[in-house]
Design a protein around this nucleic acid. Structure first.
Lengths: 249, 249
DNA sequence: ACGGCCCAACTGGTCTGATAAGTTGACCAC
DNA sequence: GTGGTCAACTTATCAGACCAGTTGGGCCGT
């Protein structure tokens, strides 16, 4: 089976394009909070699309709490820092030039460090033998794929996905989905930096063992050790890059 | 100044109503993952609204990762547990009969316990004197309003909002917004249960002091102590209610 | 029987142009 | 200054059309 890397052709609908343009302008600060949006008719004319497409885009902006809409008046831009939810994070990761925003990167790694130990602990409490078997199977695969960094990265992500699926906490689970979406945007750039973490099968194995025995504290401990490897590596890399004036990617 | 409690009259647009109906059906499991949605034209006829309203609603479902849309075929329901983001949490808090979903409630309190200590620590590191002054002013107000539970609740939330605003972590900040939206849905029901936490000005004061001195570890410690008060109180209350077979609200 | 092709009947995507309904500010009468 | 009226905005909703992609059935040549 030839594994040629194809990527899905991008087919963005008009309203998607309008949404992306407006959301970008808001998240980058070009449209500051309180600023009224142009009228729907104006926008549709300026962008060369029909009004329906503009309305669909604005409905989505409204759902993301980027704008407030009210009949009779112009929509106004909201302060996403105080109103927006975690789903905005992927849109903040890349700046105008497509470079990674290092502050966002540090933020998400810090949040990961906060949640991961508790996720591991909860999974150890609720997961049971079945989960432990799945984790061990995954670890076996990681040992076989030790040569391919990208394969390791994918397996590590799946390892945590399995933990979070079985930890019995819906908030952890949804937050994990949001964070993963941000993370995967930068995954290629981070693979090299985080490789020490991907190769740390020791702590992952300890987590799997703790899950098998239902030892929440042990799982928490090794979960913390594991993610701190990546966080510290990333912070060191970013410190070096920033002090040197350079930029990732 | 007479403070009569007025509340804004609710004016839900048609597309909002369509969105809510469909999102509810998906989140409650009436439309399981993989199930195709009715065609837009069918829906608009069945619901008695214009197709544009249906399209706006479906665009929002798509953004929330509740459905996948592709031209030429029906939209299909996605598995929100593996795709959805933290912004879905408010929609999961209440079940069909408007009762609180206790598992969701426990989940969000656990996540709060994971994040709050690190938020306090980060705020202590980055906040500075200005933040400490704001926090102390807020504490002063809380001491004056000690009689009103709802006032205390509001101030406590603002206390944490200030911490998260100054902790320099955008992921914490956005997650806080998402969680707050869930929390405020149930705030009235939880005021009584969480009152021990609202009255715990001691740990909040210790956090403010730690912020003033830039002591991250002290802030983390007292942050943990503070939120654990509420979490344990809630878990005890839910245990009692559930073993008794009763329901909150 | 099988693979390839075409076509009709779906689906969502886009467009036009109209009417209803809410907001705002200027103006005016009291 | 208070309240009413009106014109000129805005968004909300609608009907009906056509474009474009998907699907499945049937026909055909092999």
């Amino acid at each position: 089976m030839a594994r040629v890397a194809f990527s899905a052709v991008s087919k963005e609908s008009l309203s998607d394009s309008v949404y992306r343009q407006l959301a970008d302008k808001i998240l980058r600060g070009d449209l500051p909070p309180g600023e009224p949006l142009p009228a729907e008719r104006e926008l549709s004319e300026a962008l060369g699309v029909n009004r329906g497409a503009v309305r669909e885009a604005i409905k989505r902006l409204q759902q993301a709490r980027l704008v407030a809409v009210r009949q009779g008046g112009n929509s106004v831009v909201l302060d996403y820092l105080n109103e927006g939810g975690l789903e905005l994070l992927p849109g903040l990761l890349l700046n105008r030039q497509g470079q990674l925003n290092t502050a966002v990167l540090r933020s998400i790694m810090a949040m990961r460090s906060s949640l991961a130990p508790d996720i591991a602990a909860a999974a150890a409490q609720k997961g049971g033998i079945a989960l432990a078997d799945e984790l061990d199977a995954l670890l076996e695969q990681m040992r076989r794929d030790a040569g391919s960094l990208r394969a390791l990265q994918g397996h590590a992500l799946l390892f945590w996905r399995k933990l979070v699926q079985h930890c019995g906490n819906i908030a952890f689970r949804l937050a994990f989905n949001s964070m993963t979406r941000t993370y995967t945007q930068a995954s290629a750039a981070m693979a090299a930096v985080l490789q020490a973490e991907f190769r740390d099968l020791e702590n992952l194995g300890a987590i799997a063992a703790a899950v098998r025995r239902g030892e929440a504290e042990a799982a928490r401990h090794h979960g913390r050790l594991h993610v701190e490897i990546g966080r510290e590596a990333l912070n060191r890399a970013l410190d070096a890059v920033e002090s040197g004036g350079g930029k990732i990617q």
